[in-house]
Design a protein around this nucleic acid. Structure first.
Lengths: 118, 118
DNA sequence: TGGTTAGTTAACCAATCGGTGAAATGAGTC
DNA sequence: GACTCATTTCACCGATTGGTTAACTAACCA
C-alpha cells in the first residue's frame, strides 16, 4: 500500500535519528559519512534512514565522485506544517468562540445576579 | 524505549486514519462510535488508534455515562509545527543568502564583462 | 593493476504496527 | 437481576521497522 505523501512525511519525521539528519542538513549539504559521524550506529543503518528520507522527498541526493551529497527538500515540510496548522487553528478558534460565549454568559449572569451579593 | 514526545507526535500523525480522527475532532468533541462511523475497520482498531493518540497527548478523554468523549489537545501539534518551521526556515534562509550572492556575483560579472557583448 | 575510500545491497533478527474476532467490562434501562 | 449499548482487553496474525554483519559496487589513487 503505497502510503500517501503526508503519511510518508510524518513517519519519516517520527524517528529522532532522521530528524537529527534533517537538522544537520538545514545547515547545508553533507555526504553520507559526514551525516553518520555523530551516531553510534553502523553505516548501513544510516543508509536506510537516508532512503526513507529520500522516499519521503525530504532529501535529494547528488553525485560528486565517490560521494553522494544529500540536501534538504523543504516542500514536504511545508505541506506537513500546513496540515498541522490548519487543524490546530480550527481547534483554537473553537476556544476563542467558547471564551466569547463564556464572557458574554458571565456578563449576563453578573447582571442578573447583581443583587445577590454572595 | 519510551520515545520522546516529538517522535510520539509525528508517528501518531503518520497514519491517515488517525489524521482523519484529529480532523474530525477539530470540529469538536466526539464519542468513540461517532469517530469510528466513517471507517470500515472494526471498533477495536479505532480504540487502538485512540490509545496511540492519547499516548501522544494529542487527545484527552472524558467520561459521560457509557461514553468516552475525545477532545483534541493542541499543544503537541504546536511543538511539532515549531520543529518543522524552524528547520524549514533555516533551509530557506540559505537559499535567500545564495540568491543574494548570485545576484551580487552576476552584477560583478556583468560589470567585468561589459565590453564582451556575447 | 591493485589498493583505498564511499556507499549500497542482501540476509537476517527482534520489536512494533495495524488489523482481526471473541470475550470482558461498565453504565444506563426494564 | 437480565438486557442492551459503548468501549476495552486479549490472543492472534502478517507486514513493516530499525538495527546488525558480511559481501558487493563504484570511483579515485599510485
Amino acid at each position: 500500500m503505497t502510503a500517501d505523501q503526508l503519511s510518508l512525511t510524518f513517519s519519516a519525521l517520527a524517528d529522532p535519528t532522521r530528524r537529527a539528519i534533517l537538522a544537520r542538513l538545514a545547515g547545508g549539504e553533507a555526504s553520507v559519512t559526514e551525516l553518520a559521524a555523530p551516531f553510534t550506529m553502523t553505516l548501513p543503518a544510516i543508509s536506510k534512514h537516508l532512503k526513507v528520507l529520500e522516499r519521503a522527498k525530504l532529501i535529494s541526493r547528488g553525485r560528486d565522485a565517490q560521494w553522494r551529497p544529500c540536501r534538504l527538500r523543504a516542500e514536504p515540510l511545508q505541506d506537513a506544517e500546513e496540515w498541522i496548522e490548519r487543524y490546530r487553528l480550527l481547534w483554537e478558534e473553537r476556544f476563542d468562540r467558547l471564551d466569547d460565549y463564556l464572557s458574554e454568559a458571565q456578563a449576563r449572569g453578573a447582571k442578573s445576579q447583581e443583587d445577590h451579593h454572595d
